[in-house]
Amino acid sequence: MPKFFLNKRLIILLVSIMVLVALIGFSLKERNELSWMEKFVKDTVVFMQSIVHKPAQFVAGFFENVNDLRHTYEENKRLKEHLEQYVLLQSEVESLKKENERLRELLNKKESLRDFVAIQATVIGRNPDRWEETLIVNKGSQHGVKKDMAVITPQGLIGKVRSVSPFSATVQLLSAKDRQNRISAFIQGDENVFGLIEGYDEEREALLLKRIPYDAKIEKGQRVFTSGLGGIFPKGLFIGEVEEVVADEYGLTQIAYIKPAANFYDIDDVIIVKRKIEMSQEEEGQ
């Protein structure tokens, strides 16, 4: 009799391992949409989290404020210097903007890849198991968020929307390991150099910009932006600065290490970016 029970347990264990493997395989598959069950669970969790989040943030914010106070004097001095430069910059931007508009009218080109609508969202959670770096934000498909949209902070690009439910979305950070995480980007210079951001080097904490033509001349400190050629991202979102350039393993192209401009930790508020020019093919396909 005991042996029979032992076998039964073994069978249950084996069956559950099989189910586990099948489920993991299922969740690794590229899915366009979550099932309604997952959406429901996510929204419920996000709803409850936003209730608990407020007091938790308040407590954490208090300690942060105390810490901030200690550096106020130095920061104030630095910011005053910045402010003077800022006024100059602003007048320059204004005049450039006007000129740009005028020229656009001349060309009769109304929309640009740069135009986007910003959706403000608050981060209310992060993947606690810390293997895949994802954030949970409180805006979802009801607010116009769609899968694969770019997500930025004022410092620069931080990632893209991985999955959406009606009232929440999961943001995958650029530092997450994902082979499908490709972003078309260019290095700003006298001549713009295009490449693809593929992958993240954990040890150097740098993004890898691959497929740069072998004869392109790139210097350290050049700035990298999204190119808008990938389909969903708008053009001109700041990604980071070039840290080092090396030849790839076959010597046919170059790889640039990009120091991301945005901090991937301590993110409280993000902007989800919706491009104004939609991909016409994709819209038809849906």
Binding site: L13, I17, L20, I24, S27, K42, V45, E132, I136, R162
Partner: peptide, 20 residues
């Protein structure tokens, strides 16, 4: 299971581990 669905999006992993 909630952990899997809401956080990691890798279904079943923690549900299996925690109950085992």
């Amino acid at each position: 299971l909630l952990y899997d669905v809401a956080y990691t999006e890798l279904l079943g992993a923690y549900a299996f581990a925690f109950s085992l």
